[in-house]
């Protein structure tokens, strides 16, 4: 169980006995088999676990992209399981950021248009000062008018992260954001995410296979067979590797 003892921090997102089952009876797959976990605001959490352990499913359910078959998930104390489709969409737009492994950008829009897209969809103006800060932090100022096809994979991911940051969501979920990147680009992204957490108090949850990537996080949650199988604070690559070996991953 992932109980922490830092009552000062508010909880940005939380899963309570979250269950997700695919199929029925004999063929049922329990992608999430009773996951209870809190994600504190202003922290960088990594989720690790073997392939098929339910990492993506957990994130999708927390982000309002997917629905549970049992239990509850909360963002800012809002119970997502009670929301209608429309409200889930609005919640995603306002409180959640999502970075996928690839294909994060709308190909017809420029970098800056992609970054401001959630705001534009909401019909609100972005906070220009904050936008400048984000853009400078990701270092994309001279690429803003480029279309995604004119950007490298690493640059595209930076635009994607900048997009999630621009709307100042409660929480950002990133599902293997560096999975397709070379190590230099990976490092840039990871460092940027860590800065976002340290300097701007952003909450980030990231799924990764890479112990090195996970070591950028403040905390690592381990999943196995749809359950939380352990966690670690202030991880280093070595400790993570040890832990994974211990889990037989």
């Amino acid at each position: 169980m992932a109980e922490t003892d830092t009552p000062v921090r508010t909880i940005a997102a939380r899963a309570v006995d979250a269950r997700k089952t695919y199929g029925k009876d004999d063929t049922a797959v329990h992608a999430l088999d009773g996951v209870t976990v809190d994600f504190e605001a202003g922290r960088f959490t990594a989720i690790m676990g073997p392939s098929g352990s339910g990492k993506s499913t957990l994130m999708h359910c927390l982000a309002g992209l997917d629905t549970l078959t049992g239990g509850q998930v909360f963002i800012d104390d809002i119970d997502l399981t009670t929301l209608k489709e429309k409200d889930l969409t609005l919640l995603r737009r306002e409180r959640v950021g999502f970075v996928f492994q690839s294909y994060n950008l709308v190909p017809t829009l420029t970098a800056i248009e992609n970054i401001t897209l959630p705001k534009a969809l909401a019909g609100t103006k972005p906070d220009q000062a904050w936008l400048d800060t984000v853009i400078d932090t990701v270092g994309l100022r001279n690429r803003l008018s480029h279309k995604p096809s004119e950007l490298s994979g690493g640059q595209q991911q930076r635009v994607a992260v900048a997009r999630t940051m621009a709307s100042r969501p409660t929480i950002i979920f990133a599902d293997e954001p560096t999975g397709n990147l070379d190590s230099k680009s990976s490092t840039e992204i990871l460092e940027f995410m860590r800065r976002a957490v340290r300097e701007f108090g952003q909450t980030i949850v990231m799924v990764t296979h890479d112990p090195n990537a996970a070591s950028y996080a403040d905390r690592v949650i381990f999943l196995a067979d749809g359950r939380v199988s352990g966690e670690m604070s202030d991880p280093t690559p070595e400790r993570i590797l040890d832990k994974l070996k211990g889990l037989g991953g």
Binding site: L65, T89, R93, N104, P118
Partner: peptide, 16 residues
């Protein structure tokens, strides 16, 4: 499909 999924994921409503 993927692009539309992405748009929905980042907050485009069905109406939009």
């Amino acid at each position: 499909t993927r692009e539309l999924g992405l748009l929905r994921a980042i907050g485009m409503t069905r109406r939009q």
